[in-house]
Write a protein that binds this DNA or RNA. Sequence first.
DNA 1: CACCTTCTGGAACGGTCGGTCAAATACTCG
DNA 2: CGAGTATTTGACCGACCGTTCCAGAAGGTG
Lengths: 192, 192
Amino acid sequence: MARPKQFDPEHALDAAMDAFWRKGYAATSAQDLVDSTGLGRGSLYNTFVSKHRLFEEVLRRYEEQWTTRQEAILEGPEAVRERIRAVMMTVVDEETAAQDGRRGCLAVNAAVELAGLDADVTRLVRRIFGRVEEALYGALARARRDGEIDADKDPRALAQFVLNAMYGLRVLGKTADRHTLTGIVDTTLAAL
Amino acid sequence: MARPKQFDPEHALDAAMDAFWRKGYAATSAQDLVDSTGLGRGSLYNTFVSKHRLFEEVLRRYEEQWTTRQEAILEGPEAVRERIRAVMMTVVDEETAAQDGRRGCLAVNAAVELAGLDADVTRLVRRIFGRVEEALYGALARARRDGEIDADKDPRALAQFVLNAMYGLRVLGKTADRHTLTGIVDTTLAAL
DNA sequence: CACCTTCTGGAACGGTCGGTCAAATACTCG
DNA sequence: CGAGTATTTGACCGACCGTTCCAGAAGGTG
């Protein structure tokens, strides 16, 4: 019908995600987004409407990618504790791998920066948190039925407990060393 | 020697802390600081040099106030688990009390927004985290000597585990309800 | 009291913010 | 190949950014 886009919107979304992830929402300028995506200002606004809408889209994409990966690990055939160790260790790995700035979890960063101030972001973050909790709950409930987890433990409480520890790692990961973080993972797993 | 200040710098610092706490560093403008402190631009810059220096001063004041309070609770005469429950519940209370925007912990917010990007803030945050960990460690080491905690438990690992859970609460506190948060506190305490 | 220093309030600074727009361009379809 | 439509480019917008500056006010000191 007309001139097609010269860029891949998903690729641009990934570039924008990287920018927001490193610097946060407020500190990432329109110019930063132009630079990181390589798009012109016009194309950027023509495609993504506004900085805010772009950020929402980025969060949705993050949910799609990250949550799906966590769900896949948690639905695996290994022992629950191994599966939960695996998801927790992806967090530790992410935080300690990058030598240049540990950027944490985009959803956690967004929650800390904007929850309560921005209704749309709050809603998106709540959904991401909810999905991960649900995946943990699924794994733990199944493990309890299978006798891997004591019958007197509440899978819902355990799921929230693990989720809490994972998000703690995102915060402590900003300053703590790998040894400390793996120690926390061990202590957390021992409580299941 | 000359004209004395018409305002109390500590009071201004508290007002600035409130502004930074609610909106974060980047999203708080010089105008916001003028409005919240009630100072003129001249007085503000004459006293606090720059937005960045002011934020550092605010973080130091936060450390002084918050850390001291946590240390006081942890040095108390009650059973360790009660003392640790008390510090964790102050977090839960803070997050669920405010109807208008749960602002979290200033140090956690600063860590998530700026650690890795701002060396001065990273250093200050690391010190705050360190002091709280040390206070927890002191309480747990004493409890182990007194037989309140099993001898085969490592007080350092437990201190970091509790610290991690506290910072998780700061994140989850953005979206979770009080019942969920208290449940997490219970599960965490049961692991000591 | 006059002097000197500091503080105060607000105008003003260059720069950047998020966002818009019109002209040039490149594609599809008839 | 010409008409029509959407994308691209980058100049441009008013508002606001963090910061500076200065004229005048207000004390303490001699």
